[in-house]
Amino acid sequence: MTTVIETTNLTKTFGRTVALDELNLTVEAGDVHGFLGPNGAGKTTTIRILLGLIRPDSGSATVLGGHPIRDAVELHRRIAYVPGDVELWPQLTGGEAIDVLGRLRGDGDRSRVDELCERFDLDRTKKARTYSKGNRQKVALIAALASDADLFILDEPTSGLDPLMEAIFQEEVRALIARGATVLLSSHILSQVEALANRVSVIRDGAIVETGTLDEMRHLRRTTIQATLERPVDGLDATPGVHGLTLTGGRLTMEVDGEHIGAVMSRLTDAGLTSVVAHPPTLEQMLLRHYGEATTR
């Protein structure tokens, strides 16, 4: 497997603000790589370095085997980018903006643009100044998806889209992977990353705190169990592996570490279990643990 993106100890400061602190990120070819983190964690700064728009203070980045700044023009022929906050030229129509961006890339495919505008339900004849945030985002998405790029860098690409459009977006990303492209998908929308990504890197305070496949991360995580019992259970909150036990209206809610689930479940069964709901660990909980720790530091 070839490496598409590799950064080594990437560091970037803006004045006194440390945006990236020795960030190491590796993205393999053919992956949808989820790039997860809260606002201000350094996702966009990393992406802007990968695109050669800003230069790191120290550390290095390699994209598609090239140098982000030295080889910018050649690399950008193979990269499609959707920024998180899309601004367009107010006096141009959406259709004109898509064409301009396509022509600058030099690979505008008319029928593909038509198809994407149809799928994303974009009225191309409106001036960009009348577009909502979601419609501006659609313009940048369509311009990117219509390209034959090898690497797609998508910075929170659907933050303004509704769930229906989100579903179409997911189909389109799967189609990209099917034809062999690589996607770096930055997001704080966890369900989106869960639905699409096969590998995830979690960024916090400018550094990668966790990276791996979703399965690799899951086994470390807790399962949420909600249960209704016939009889009360004494000392359940003191049981190893049980966290955050609450009782509301006869309904227990708790988080249980993976390796203790068997023991906890048998105690619940002994107390006359009448209903149980178990959620798999979501990335939300994973992130909450990271950021929860960060905020209580």
């Binding site: 802007r48 695109l51 728009l53 700044i69 910018a72 023009v73 050649e74 950008h76 022929r77 990269i79 980018y81 920024p83 906050d85 899309v86 601004e87 367009l88 030229w89 961006l101 600058l104 890339r105 030099g106 940048a140």
Partner: peptide, 15 residues
């Protein structure tokens, strides 16, 4: 300032 330059510069456009 508006970020439109970013869209343009992310295309194969010289510095």
């Amino acid at each position: 300032q508006t970020g439109r330059a970013e869209l343009v510069r992310a295309a194969p456009v010289g510095r």
